[in-house]
Amino acid sequence: MSTPLLELDKVQKHYKSNRSSFLGKPSYVKAVNSVSLRLFEGETLGLVGESGSGKSTTGQIIAQLISQTSGTVFYKGSDVTTFTNKQMKAWRKKVQIVFQDPYASLNPKKKIEWIVSEPLVIHRIRTKVERREKVVEVLEDVGLDASYLHRYPHELSGGQRQRVAIATAIILNPEFIVIDEGVSALDVSVQAQILNLLKQLQNKYKLTYLFISHDLNVIQYFCDRIAVMYLGEIVEQGRTDLIGSNLKHPYAQALFSANPTVDENKTQIVLGGEVPNSGTPPAGCPFHPRCAKAMETCSSFKPSDVHLNQTHVVRCHLYKTIEGNSKDTIEEAIR
């Protein structure tokens, strides 16, 4: 069995929040709480969840822009936290990140040529003349052309800027790209163009994507698998075709039922209450105060991952693991 391209093993990220008093104990906000994920070559995993559920933090931990409090990130089986500076720099060529806001992700004082060629300069790849050829090549890959070389970001539209951001991400021929709300800031028509572009690039360069979004329609269209996050935990993950009637976790069911569609017969599950403060998450299952199907055990014991079939994992007391579906068999089923 081959190792996954990227694996998160019980990753946690806790932020220290302000003490209540000078002598008081500092409290911690658990932005990401025990997240385990596996990503296999060539697939697109969609990470969904509401605001504050820890999606973006997870994405930035994968790109090692922030370091996790505990847990491990494996890339092709090796622990990235043990990398030396040199190994880290080489690894950064393989993993890229595209951000949500194309107005903030390009340096406003630099021209497009400078921005797109920067990764080549950082890694001392090619000479100046060859770099320009590569920049033009990549700009054409993302649907722009050489006329953009000498423009500044403020001269471009949101969609064009996002294309430039994608160009900077693919110029190093990465294997893996984290797309953090990559199309959320764009108009719907432009969103479709960018999503198609990302698909084309995936086929051309054999890319693996982690696609973070709160837009359920986009996730449904774009991803092979989904993972649903709630309060820093992944409560359910499985193939995208589960969406519809086969989602098992009460939160995931509620989330997808809230998504407006043209289906008139669909019943919408309305959740009561507020999202709890992630500084003081509820004991037991984090979702139990809002869950319609909550049982007694839910408030006292944390549920563990239940493997419903080879690809479908849910973290809920309502379900029991079916024999023979361990996490090691997931990958074979995906293929």
Binding site: A63, Q96, I97, F99, S105, I122, T168, L172
Partner: peptide, 26 residues
Amino acid sequence: QFDFVKASIAKGAGSFRIIFQHILPN
């Protein structure tokens, strides 16, 4: 904390480059 700084770190840029090419001009 702007995304273009984070993006540059993700591409492997060192502190020197971040300070003088990305932050200083802004």
